[in-house]
Design a protein around this nucleic acid. Structure first.
Ligand code: NAD
Ligand code: NAD
Lengths: 231, 231
DNA sequence: TTAATATTGTGAAATTGTTCACAAGTTTGA
DNA sequence: TCAAACTTGTGAACAATTTCACAATATTAA
């Protein structure tokens, strides 16, 4: 009797890595959505969840959910669905939410102040550790318990405090110059609120929140009401 | 001598309307980008601009620019490019920026206050006319020159003042209920800042600014640094 | 034990979005 | 007046993304 061929049973690597496959921006955005959905389902006591139900949170198709998740591995059980708690943890790991990040904020104005006082960010692991401004009236004062430093010292302080991520809430006219300083300090992630195009090297990730653009989108849809649009 | 065949010379209709063609969300977003670019070029004194130069503002390809614009008509001149001032006005018209909009804001908290004091919105035609809150300490007080109304009167006031667009800056837990009121008042455009999924009827356009999602995107890119990603 | 039902994971098909490539038209300079 | 240099507008090719469809597997109930 010949011995049975042993099944290769090492832990299956994710599709994304195996294929050198690329994860699209939309997939990452939806991962955030799933994460939020799973938090809700967990709170409501669900132990497992189907791609169908997960899809409802966000007007997606079940196939889309399964495809997105399959990029990172096989997390579900056929016939049953996905284990809520476990999948939530897997996504947290994928999104980098299973740890804390050191954040600095530049521009302690209207937007900056709102962000500093927002309680949800620390809960998600984003800790605002340093504040910067160029206004002498704000420098060296405490702002909600955090000292405001002179933006002149930006690069050195960012390095000193091992800042992972910088939020930019300065006027558009200052955004590029501040960004260049941030980049020179080796920071690889920037969230920008200034309504302007900023140049960064390829290895730096820049995301922008552009409220004017969102309003323009809305006024576009008001003006074009009635014509067949895609969204 | 026979008379020349007269060229049909009626105003050419745009591709979008002719084809029943659909304008993608990305195209609208890029239109905002072009608009901003054109404003800059106009300020700098340019009379015409090529798709090539317009593309640089935003890391796009010239073909993309031409394709986007061709959805709405033929605005350029072969060999020359696009007339800056004229194209800017055309895009303003497409995006609905050649007029003013009546805006109401619900939730005069950190984010709401920042938005109320932002000077750029009125310049773009978005006039915040009404404020609402459910906090008795804020109701009937003036906030930067604008009276704060009780959210109980939301629907009636929105109709009374012919509000086109509502900004939601309330806690996530209140977002759906407030939205339902807004929708019942016949408002067709909503900009939401609460980090939650909101349901609206198909004829209502909802855009959301979700800062947590942007941060999650950034932490994802920090965690996945080095793997071949698409962005 | 079996049938009926549920649900994943994933190639393949369909759809959507982007880039190419070039004819057509414009300008510039000799 | 002509040629060289530009640049648009757009069909067609290509690429990316989404949806379909179904085999594989688990659960439940009789
Ligand atoms: N306020 C809003 O609702 C709103 C809406 C959309 C976009 N934005 C954009 O967000 C950004 C911030 O807006 P805001 O309303 O908070 O402005 P703001 O004027 O209230 O605050 C800007 C802060 O940046 C500081 N600053 C200026 N130049 C600086 C520099 N070189 N280095 C460090 N600090 C500097 C200022 O001293 C000020 O404290 C702007 O780009 C604005 O266009 C704001
Ligand atoms: N502050 C930030 O930086 C930040 C960042 C990301 C997201 N957000 C989101 O933006 C929204 C607003 O945040 P915020 O920091 O301004 O909160 P906030 O608590 O400062 O303000 C919320 C305001 O809404 C009012 N309100 C509550 N329930 C209401 C109701 N049913 N009707 C009318 N008004 C009501 C409150 O009285 C308060 O004035 C929240 O959903 C928050 O999660 C805020």
């Amino acid at each position: 009797m010949r011995s049975m061929v042993r099944q290769a049973h090492h832990k299956k690597e994710s599709h994304a890595r195996l294929t050198g496959g690329r994860v699209s921006e939309s997939t990452v955005r939806r991962l955030s959505l799933y994460y939020r959905g799973l938090s809700t389902f967990e709170r409501e006591g669900y132990k497992t969840i189907s791609s169908k139900d997960l899809a409802k949170e966000g007007r997606l198709t079940p196939a889309q959910v399964r495809k997105d998740l399959s990029f990172f591995g096989s997390f579900g059980t056929r016939g049953l669905g996905y284990p809520v708690k476990e999948l939530k943890e897997k996504i947290a790991r994928i999104l980098g939410l299973n740890r804390t990040w050191n954040v600095a904020l530049v521009g302690v104005g209207n937007v900056g102040s709102a962000l500093v006082s927002y309680k949800e960010f620390p809960k998600q692991g984003f800790n605002i550790k340093l504040l910067f401004d160029n206004d002498q009236r704000k420098i060296n004062k405490n702002h909600k318990g955090i000292q405001v430093f002179d933006v002149k010292d930006l690069a050195s302080k960012l390095k000193e405090h091992k800042i992972d991520l910088v939020i930019l809430a300065v006027p558009a006219s200052a955004a590029q110059a501040v960004t260049d300083d941030v980049v020179s300090a080796g920071v690889k992630s920037i969230l920008n609120f200034a309504p302007t195009h900023i140049k960064v090297p390829d290895d730096v990730t820049l995301r922008s929140v552009n409220m004017a653009m969102e309003l323009e989108h809305l006024s576009f849809s008001l003006v074009n009401k009635g014509y067949p649009l895609k969204f």
